[in-house]
Each structure stands twice: as C-alpha cells, then as structure tokens.
Simulated scan of single mutants.
Amino acid sequence: MRKKLEKCNIVFTGFMGVGKTTVSAYIANLLNREVIETDQYIVEKANMDIPSIFDKFGENYFRDLESEAVAEISKKRGVIISCGGGAVIRKKNVLELKESGIIIRLTATPNTVLQRVKNSKERPILNGHMNTEFISSLMEKRDSFYSNAADITISTDGKTVDEIAKECIEKSITFIESK
C-alpha cells in the first residue's frame, strides 16, 4: 500500500493558521517529497504578494489565479500540496485535487488559529478583523466546503507536528487501503 501512497498527492486544506504549511513541510521531509504551496505558487507566477493582489485586483481575481494554480499543480504526482485557506471554495478545485490525491483537512479552534496568525500581515481577509469572533464566523461559513472536500480530517490542537504528521500518514494509508 505504501507504493500507492508514493504515487498519490497528499493535499492539505483547512482554514488559515491550522498548520498546513508546517505539517506539509514536515511530511515532505519525512517522505522525501516536494512540497508545493498554492499561495507561494501564485505569488511567484503573479510576481506580487497576496495582499497586493487583493488590493489591486480583488478577491475574485485572486480566486481565479488560485484555480489556475490548482489545475497546474494537480497535474503533478507524488507531491505534497498545501492549499490556501479558500482553495476548496470552488468545486472545480476540489475535483482536480481529489483526482490527483488524498485531501486531508486540518482543523484547529478559532482561539488556536488566532494565536498562530495574530502577528501575520499576509492574511488580507483578517486585516482589521484579528479576533476570535470574526475567525469563528468565517470558519463557520467555510466549514461545509472543508468537510465536503476532505477524505480525512485531523485536529491540530494540542498536538506536536510529529504527532500530526504520523496521524496523517497512517490515516492516508488506511484511506488508500479502503479504496
């Protein structure tokens, strides 16, 4: 079954600040795989940071760039993909990601998310709304998108990155075996 996992992309989704970047990098190192962050991919292609894209062109334009990035990245095999927090809002993104791999949804409480992102200037949706009430509200709005996209859901609250990574790998193998 590990052979099947080797050919499969491992895709991380979830709200901003749940640990996608950290866990992706850790698992990529463990499994000796390339990690691709959709947000970083967009920044490099657009030659502009995400807050600037939002400011200059708006969220819809950013979501279009995100869909293009997902389509391109999903053509690869055996990579770790860390999706931006809103990538699963568009159904076509989810279908392309599922076609190429396993989608793991990472979760955390609004308070945990706030603690992780409170000093970030790279979260344009949270600018001026850096509080648990707003985060909780946005999480609720996106929850069905994340849960419908996910093959596996793992909470990151109170766990080390090693514990989360091992759980991701074990559940991925179990998921593949069940197919």
Rank of each mutant, 00 (worst) to 15 (best):
E34C: 08
S74G: 13
S144A: 10
I89K: 11
F57W: 11
L95S: 09
L30K: 13
P51R: 06
D143H: 10
Q115F: 02
K4T: 07
G86K: 03
D143S: 13
Y26R: 13
M130W: 05
T160Y: 02
I36H: 09
R142N: 09
F62E: 11
E99W: 07
I73W: 00
N119L: 04
L106C: 12
V23M: 06
K91F: 04
R63F: 03
V79R: 12
V113L: 04
M48T: 14
V94K: 12
C8E: 15
I135P: 03
M139C: 04
Y26T: 05
K179S: 15
K7S: 03
P110L: 06
K20N: 04
A150F: 07
R63L: 03
I169F: 07
N60E: 15
A69G: 03
E170D: 15
E96P: 00
K3I: 01
V11G: 05
I81C: 09
I104D: 01
K76M: 04
I42T: 08
I125Y: 12
N29P: 01
D39N: 11
M48C: 15
F145G: 06
R63S: 01
E37H: 09
S120L: 03
N47W: 00
E72Y: 00
N9G: 02
R105G: 07
G17M: 03
A165D: 13
K76T: 02
L31Q: 06
P110H: 01
R90A: 00
G85L: 11
I102S: 02
E140I: 10
Y146N: 10
G101K: 12
T22L: 13
F12M: 10
R142E: 06
S137H: 07
H129N: 14
E66H: 03
I36N: 10
I50F: 08
E167T: 12
A87D: 04
K56E: 14
G86Y: 01
F134D: 08
F62L: 08
S120F: 03
S52C: 10
E96M: 13
G128I: 08
I10L: 14
K45M: 11
N148M: 06
V161M: 04
A46D: 05
A108V: 07
E140G: 13
K7N: 11
L5S: 02
R123W: 14
E122N: 14
L126I: 07
A71I: 00
R2T: 10
K171V: 03
L114G: 06
E170H: 09
P51T: 05
T156A: 03
K45R: 15
E44V: 11
A28W: 03
T109K: 14
I80P: 02
S155T: 14
S144M: 06
E37Q: 10
T109L: 08
K141L: 06
M48V: 11
E167L: 13
A46H: 04
I42S: 07
E44C: 06
D157V: 05
T160C: 07
I154S: 12
S137L: 06
T21E: 08
E167D: 10
G86C: 01
I152G: 06
K4Y: 12
R105N: 15
I135R: 10
F15P: 00
K76I: 00
S67K: 10
T112A: 14
K75I: 00
L31H: 07
I102Q: 08
G85A: 10
